[in-house]
Amino acid sequence: MSFPSQAEEQALHERVLKKNESLASQDVFRVFMAPITRVLCRNRRKTKEEAHDAVCDVLMEYLENPERYLAHKSKLSSYLTRNAEMQVRDMYRSQEARQRREREFGEAIELRATAPNRSLEIIVEARHLVGQLEQAIQEQDRAALGLILQGERSTDALAKAMNLPQLSEKELRREVKRNRDRLMKTLGRIGKEE
């Protein structure tokens, strides 16, 4: 099925503009649906269903606002086909964006997730290590170690957790470093033993 002549298109457009002829919208579908779908399938390599959805949306948009089509600028069929091509492109872009979002989300999950058999081993190892740490590290050092493992770098915060007395800034920094090194050395030793 091919596009109608310009005179036929114009006559149909005038019927649509009046908005008082119920069958005019049905005729727009009868006249344009098949040829525009064919153009989309050929030029854009879309499936028939994708093309149908795009053409439907464009025809509905035209029927709702027929005055947007300016007859002196182009043929109605050209106007509708161009809009349908843009609609297909928009649909393709939003589909691609959705797929990219889903892929990125999937990759993030994949990176963070642990294989089911491995997670059980990790739980056992962690429990064993905690037992070792409790034995190797004294009660007063545990708070400081907790902060260090959480990435705390503030001298004051670490000094408080280490129960250091009032010292000058320079001495406090040196004491915090000394205690920190000692704890890290202990951790390193436990790690080597394992």
Binding site: S22, F29, M33, A34, E49, H52, D53, C56, L63
Partner: peptide
């Protein structure tokens, strides 16, 4: 009847000016 008919009818439900 064309293969797009049912699909188009379903999409037309979105517009309140349609039958």
């Amino acid at each position: 009847n064309p293969d797009w008919l049912e699909r188009a009818a379903l999409r037309a439900q979105r517009a309140s000016w349609t039958l």
